[in-house]
Simulated scan of single mutants.
Amino acid sequence: MKTKLLAAVTGMLMMVGSAQALTVYTSVDEENASAILKAFTESTGVKVDMVFLSSGPAMSRIEAEANRPQADVWFGAPSENHILAAERGLVEPYVSANAGDLTDEFKDANGNWHAIYTNPLALGVRTDLLESRGAPVPASWEDLKNEAYKGLIQMPSPQSSGTAYAVILTLTQLWGEDAAFEYMKALNPNIQTYTQSGTAPSGALGVGETPIALQFSPGFLKLVDEGFPVKVVFPSEGVGYEVAAMSILKGANNLDDAKKLVDWMTSAEGQEQLAAAKTYFLPIRSDVSAGEGIPTLKDIKLVSYDPSFASDNRQRLVDRWVDEVLGQ
C-alpha cells in the first residue's frame, strides 16, 4: 500500500513538473513582450510566466538569485548586458539550430545569447512645429548643432538610459572618442532636456512638447503609423543600433522549454510576430519583412561597435559625459 501511494505521489509530482510554466524575466516593454510571448505559447503550447524588469534591475536580480535561480530566460536588454551576464557565469550556453541563419552581430558564437530584434537610432521630427518656426528638417548629426534648434531637442540621459549610451558609442565610432565628446558639448545648448527614460522623447514629440527627439526608431515609426506629422530621419553619417538579446539562465528549472523559446524566437515564424504584433522592431533575419512602411536594415547606414567594448567601457564613458557635457 505504501509503495502504491509513493508511486502515485511521484507520478503527480512528475505531472506538476512537466506542466511547469517557463519563467521569463523580460526587459522588452510589457506590451510588446506580452504579445510576442503570447504568440510563442499559441505556437508551442508552452505556458509563460512573465516578470518585467528593466535591464539594470534584471541583472541585479539574476545575480542575487544565482545560487537558486527563479527564472529560466532573460528576454530583452542590449546584447552587451548578456555578454556581461555570461562573463559572470549567469547564463547557460545553447546554440540554436537557427543560429546559422543569423549574421554574427545577432548571436554569440558560443551560444551565450541570441538576438531578438534590432532597432537603429533615429531622429523623430515634428515637421509642423519646425515649419511654424521656419526651421529646416535636420538630415545629419552635424545639422543638429544648428542654432535654430536651441533648446528644442530631447534625448535620453546616458546616466539612466542604454539608448543614450548607444548615441555615445555611435559618435565615438564615427569620429573617435575625443571628437565625439567635443560634438556632444557643442550640441548641449540645443538640448531641451535629457530624459530618464529611453522612450520618453517620442512621447514628448507626440504631444508637441518638443519638435525634435532622439532615440531608437520604434516610437517614431508608431507615431507615423498613427497619423502624426512626424518624419523619421536616420542621420546621414550613420547610426548605431541596439541588439536586444535573450539568454538562458544558468540553473534554469525549465531548460527544455527555454531552448524552445530561443529556437522559436530566432525562427522565421517567431520573427514574423514582430510585424504581426506591430512592435515596430526590425527583424534579425533577412528573410523576414519588417512590415509595410518600415525601412529595412539595407536602407539605413548602420554603424557597428564592439559589444565587448561597450560593456567594458560603459561606466568610464558615462562618467566622462557627466563631467564634460552635463557639467560644462
Rank of each mutant, 00 (worst) to 15 (best):
G176K: 04
Y165W: 05
N110F: 05
M155T: 02
S43Q: 07
T172N: 09
Q159K: 13
Y149V: 08
G206P: 00
S308I: 15
D128I: 15
G134D: 09
I248T: 11
F52W: 01
D108M: 04
V51T: 15
A166M: 10
D299S: 01
I300E: 04
L317G: 06
E182K: 11
D299E: 12
P93S: 02
A35L: 11
L129Q: 09
N253A: 03
L174Q: 05
L214I: 14
V16G: 01
S217G: 01
G162L: 03
L37T: 02
A77F: 02
R88N: 10
P78A: 11
D29S: 05
A180Q: 03
M50E: 10
A35G: 14
T172I: 15
I36N: 00
F309I: 13
S18Q: 12
E65L: 02
T266W: 06
F281S: 08
T296G: 13
Y165N: 04
S54D: 14
P235L: 03
S247H: 08
G203H: 06
I284H: 00
F234E: 05
T195Y: 05
P138I: 00
I62P: 00
A258S: 15
A213Y: 09
N313R: 13
E31W: 10
A85Y: 06
L214R: 00
S43W: 04
I116K: 08
W141Q: 07
L205H: 03
I153W: 02
E147W: 07
G45C: 06
L37S: 12
P283R: 00
E131P: 01
T195C: 01
S267C: 01
W74L: 04
A200G: 08
G56N: 11
V325D: 04
T193Y: 08
R68W: 12
L123P: 04
S96W: 05
T127W: 00
G76M: 07
K47F: 10
G124S: 04
M265Y: 13
G293F: 02
A99R: 03
G134W: 04
R316T: 07
K107Q: 09
A21K: 09
F52L: 10
K107V: 14
L297D: 11
N188M: 13
S54M: 08
A166V: 13
I62N: 12
E269C: 06
N146L: 12
Y183Q: 13
Q173H: 01
R126N: 15
T193V: 12
G251T: 05
I83A: 01
A85V: 11
Q173C: 03
K185A: 10
L171M: 10
E226W: 07
D178N: 10
L221V: 01
A71Q: 03
G198P: 01
G151K: 05
G17N: 15
S304H: 10
Q328F: 11
M50W: 11
N313K: 11
G293V: 03
V51A: 15
K278A: 14
A66C: 02
L169K: 12
